[in-house]
Amino acid sequence: MKRGAPVLALVLAAMWLVLNDTLAPAQVLLAALVAAALAWWSARLRPLRPRLHRPLLALGLLGRVFVDIVRSNLSVGRIILGLVRDRDIRSGFLEVPLELRDPHGLAVLATIVTSTPGTVWVDLSADRRTLTLHVLDLQDEAAWVRVIKDRYERPLLGIFQP
């Protein structure tokens, strides 16, 4: 088994330096040592190694998710304050067929779905083919399925499963 995870070590070292709020040479050295040791030691805890293809696509996805978080916050806020009066708000469960199988990709999808208010991840079927979500404003089921598949799943497929 290949040992050492350079990305994990870099992230850990960056976190150490940010937490200490310093760039002193001694702290940088300490950060490098701690991060390398932790990354080497935790390699056996992570049997699956994520492989990031197309990092630019990941950056684009990050920006898109940020915009979606702001937008869905505003729409959920309007529902809570009772500003949507022209129709009934119907919330319910939604099933989305998935093509994404990579566990890291699914973890990122769970983070995206949960951090946008209005959708909460409920369950993934045992064969990883169907995802169940709870949607607050389930007006048009097909539109929600399209949003999940086109906006989030397609870029994730490109990033984790080329």
Binding site: V76, I80, P117
Partner: peptide, 11 residues
């Protein structure tokens, strides 16, 4: 209610 909570927690 879970949707309301994720509002305060994210933005």
């Amino acid at each position: 209610r879970m949707h309301g909570v994720s509002m305060g927690g994210t933005l």
